[in-house]
Amino acid sequence: MWQFFHKLGSPKWFFGISARFMPWLLAGGVLLLMAGVVWGLAFAPKDYLQGNSYRIIFIHVPTAFMAQSIYIMMASAAVVTLVWRMKLADVFVKAVAPVGLVLTFLALFTGAVWGKPTWGTWWIWDARLTSMLILLFLYGGVIALDRAINDEKSAARAVAVLVLVGVVNIPIIKYSVEWWNTLHQPASFKLTEKPTMPPEMWVPLLLSVLGLYLIFGWLACIRMQTEILSREQRTRWVKEFVMRGRS
């Protein structure tokens, strides 16, 4: 079992296997996301209370969900970096942190634009919105810390510790709407309960969440490949790969 785990850590092995999945991830992701978005924008019924402004949910929920789930993945990778010193885990953290930053920004932005017509304000310092803003700063901090340290190994450890420290923010984001009273409403999707909306609303939402997940998978693969190529320039397999592609 541990042997497989260590094979997983080999950048060369990852490079080969990810190239096989990438086209499927991209095609499936774009297809699902577009299906969800078109369905949500044009075909889903409007909400009895909010009218058409609720259609922002079809990108707000996927981006907010991804923002948190990318951070959880980064934290798991940080544990692997600290305990097993596996290079690939560190490559993952560095490759996806900017994606997490963009998606967190998008979740905050779409939330603000949605808040204006429904709540009557762009922003309020309630627990949910504030903890989400902290997540944005955490992503920014991870990227900045990585850039600030030149030595690859010490950067990897420092970044891993920061990511791990920040992971306590994730349960705060998730349960903020239940632990404290907030302006933000509780989640519409829960693992254990029925969604609080009819299928013609939650099916497109689920499609766009899955679509964005697959697109994230593709982005993670391609960005990790970039990071691996730049780190392993001096190895023979990178040279063979680069020269074979070009000659």
């Binding site: 909400d47 009895y48 209370l49 309020i124 509780p186 989640a187 609080t196 009819p198």
Partner: peptide, 16 residues
């Protein structure tokens, strides 16, 4: 200032 708060339930107008 008054802000509106809504819950997590969404439904089409006909259902409401």
């Amino acid at each position: 200032q008054i802000l509106a708060k809504h819950d997590e339930n969404y439904m089409p107008p006909e259902v409401a």
